[in-house]
Amino acid sequence: MIKFTLKCDQDHRFESWFQSSDAFDKLERAGMVTCSICGSEAVEKAIMAPTVRASRSVAAAPTEGTKSPALTTPTTEMEQALAALKKQVEENSEYVGMNFASQARDIHDGLAPNRAIHGEAKPEEARKLIEDGVPVSPLPFIPNRKTN
Rank of each mutant, 00 (worst) to 15 (best):
N92A: 09
N99R: 07
A61M: 13
S57G: 01
E94C: 06
M98K: 08
E41V: 09
M78R: 10
P62L: 15
H108V: 11
T34V: 12
G97N: 14
K86W: 08
E41G: 05
A61H: 04
K26R: 14
A101V: 13
C35A: 03
G97Q: 12
C38M: 15
A70C: 06
T72G: 01
E64Y: 09
F100P: 02
F18H: 11
A42N: 08
R105N: 04
T34N: 10
T73C: 05
E15D: 06
A101N: 01
I47S: 00
G31N: 09
A83G: 01
T66N: 01
G65P: 05
M98Q: 08
V89H: 00
V33Y: 00
S102V: 15
P74C: 03
V33T: 04
A84S: 14
G31Y: 08
V43F: 04
S40D: 11
A83E: 07
F100Q: 10
D22V: 12
V33G: 00
Y95D: 15
E91Q: 14
F18K: 07
I37Y: 07
E44G: 00
A70M: 14
S102E: 02
A59F: 07
A101C: 04
E15H: 08
G31A: 08
F18E: 04
E94A: 07
M48L: 06
G31Q: 13
Q103D: 13
A81W: 05
R53K: 02
S55R: 04
W17C: 06
A60C: 03
R13W: 15
T34F: 11
K86T: 14
H12S: 07
K87S: 10
E15P: 00
M98S: 09
T51M: 01
E91M: 07
I47W: 03
S40K: 12
Q80G: 06
R13A: 10
T76F: 08
A70E: 07
M98L: 15
T51K: 01
F14L: 15
S40I: 13
M78D: 05
L71Y: 05
S57R: 08
E79T: 06
E79S: 03
T73D: 09
A42D: 06
S40H: 10
A101D: 10
N92T: 12
A83Y: 06
L27W: 07
V52T: 06
A59L: 08
E79G: 02
D25W: 12
T75V: 10
Y95I: 15
K86N: 05
S55Q: 03
A101Q: 01
A84M: 13
K67M: 11
A61I: 10
P69T: 15
L27V: 03
G65R: 06
F18Q: 04
S55W: 04
V58I: 15
A23E: 14
L27P: 00
D25E: 10
V58H: 03
E90C: 11
E91V: 13
P50K: 12
C38W: 15
N99P: 00
